[in-house]
C-alpha cells in the first residue's frame, strides 16, 4: 500500500515492466487463493447436495438438490457424539491448564530481576530441539498410570516452549519496568501485581495462547492414538480417521436392514463431506474472528525465535 502511494505522490509513472509485474502478481495471487478456497467451498456444497449429482460431477458452483441426509446419519452415529463431547472436554480443560502453566511462567521469566532466568529458559528451549523419543515418553506416561485415562489427553500438550517464548517476549516488551518498580515501592507484592496489573494488561496475549492451545487440543490425533485405546475416551480425531481415512463410514450404527445399508454406501461420500464440516465447525465459526490473533502471535514470536 505504502509503495503504491509513494509512487503516485512522486508523480512518477510506472514503467511498462512494472504494469506487467502488477498483472502477473494479481493473477498469481488469484490462482493460489482460488486453488485453496475452491476445495474448501466444494466440501461445503457437496455435503448439502444429492450424492448422485456430486459423483457425476454436476455439483460445481452451487449445491444441487439440497439434502441433509448425510448430516442425519452423522448425528445418529454414536461415535461422532462421543468424540465430540470428549474432544470438547479435553480442549476446554486442557486449554485452562495450559494457560495456568504458561502465563505465570512467561511473566516470571520476562522479569529481569529473576535470578537464573537465563538458565531456566535454556532448559525450556532445549526441549524444542531434542526429545527422548516416542517409547521413553510412552513408558513415562504408562509408569504414571495415565494410559487410557482422560487426564493424559488433558495434560499432554498443556505446555510448549514455543508458546512460552511468545508469552515471555510479549511481557518483556509490554510491561514497562517503571510500572513494576512503582508497584514495588508501593509495597505491592508480586502475586498481587501479577493478578491486578499484568493479567489485565495482557488480555490479547492470553487470547492468543488460549487459541493456540485450543486448536492444538482440538486437532490432536497423535496423543489419542498412542495413549488411549478405550472407545469411550477417544477424541474426535480418532473417530474421524475411521470415517475419513479407513472408510468405515458409520458401519457401527446398528442397522441390519440391507436396504438401508445400501443406501448408506451410496451416500458414504456425502457423509464424509459432512463429517469434515461438522468436525471443523468450531474452528470454521470462530476462524474469521480469531485469525488476526493467530497472526499477531506469529509476529510476537518472530521478534525473538
Amino acid at each position: 500500500m505504502t509503495h503504491a502511494k509513494g509512487s503516485s505522490r512522486h508523480g512518477i509513472r510506472e514503467t511498462k515492466a512494472d504494469r506487467v509485474f502488477d498483472v502477473i502478481v494479481t493473477i498469481l495471487v488469484a490462482l493460489i487463493t482460488f486453488s485453496i478456497a475452491y476445495p474448501l467451498y466444494f466440501i461445503v456444497i457437496a455435503s448439502f447436495s444429492n450424492p448422485d449429482l456430486v459423483a457425476s460431477g454436476q455439483v460445481i458452483l452451487i449445491p444441487k438438490d439440497i439434502s441433509i441426509s448425510g448430516y442425519t446419519y452423522i448425528f445418529r452415529d454414536p461415535r461422532i457424539m462421543t468424540g465430540y463431547l470428549n474432544t470438547f472436554l479435553y480442549t476446554v480443560l486442557g486449554t485452562v491448564l495450559a494457560l495456568c502453566i504458561t502465563i505465570p511462567a512467561g511473566y516470571a521469566l520476562s522479569r529481569r530481576d529473576m535470578l537464573g532466568r537465563g538458565i531456566i529458559m535454556k532448559i525450556m528451549v532445549f526441549t524444542m530441539y531434542f526429545s527422548g523419543g516416542l517409547i521413553p515418553s510412552y513408558l513415562i506416561v504408562k509408569g504414571l498410570n495415565l494410559v487410557d485415562t482422560r487426564l493424559v489427553l488433558i495434560i499432554l500438550g498443556s505446555f510448549s516452549a514455543y508458546n512460552l517464548i511468545i508469552c515471555k517476549t510479549f511481557y518483556e516488551s509490554n510491561i514497562p519496568i517503571e510500572v513494576q518498580e512503582a508497584a514495588d515501592i508501593d509495597g505491592c507484592s508480586i502475586p498481587r501485581f501479577f493478578f491486578s496489573i499484568v493479567i489485565p494488561l495482557s488480555k490479547a496475549t492470553i487470547a492468543i495462547m488460549a487459541l493456540y492451545y485450543a486448536v492444538a487440543h482440538w486437532n490432536d490425533f497423535f496423543n489419542g492414538l498412542i495413549y488411549v485405546n478405550k472407545q469411550a475416551l477417544m477424541p474426535l480425531q480418532l473417530f474421524l480417521r475411521d470415517i475419513l481415512i479407513s472408510g468405515h463410514t458409520l458401519t457401527n450404527s446398528n442397522t441390519a436392514d440391507p436396504e438401508q445399508l445400501l443406501n448408506m454406501q451410496r451416500i458414504a461420500r456425502t457423509i464424509q463431506y459432512g463429517v469434515i464440516i461438522v468436525s471443523s465447525l468450531p474452528i470454521l465459526v470462530f476462524y474469521p474472528f480469531i485469525q488476526k490473533y493467530f497472526v499477531k502471535g506469529v509476529m510476537v514470536g518472530s521478534i525473538k525465535g
Binding site: I101, A105, R111, I120, M124, T127, I140, F159, S189, F194
Partner: peptide
C-alpha cells in the same frame, strides 16, 4: 522475588516429567 519461582514451577514440573524424564529412559 522467590515467588517468581513458584510461577515457573508448573512449567518446570511439566517439562521435567514429559520432556526430561524420557531422556533418562533413553
Amino acid at each position: 522475588t522467590w515467588v517468581l519461582y513458584l510461577f515457573v514451577l508448573p512449567a518446570l514440573l511439566y517439562i521435567a516429567i514429559f520432556n526430561y524424564a524420557p531422556l533418562y529412559g533413553i
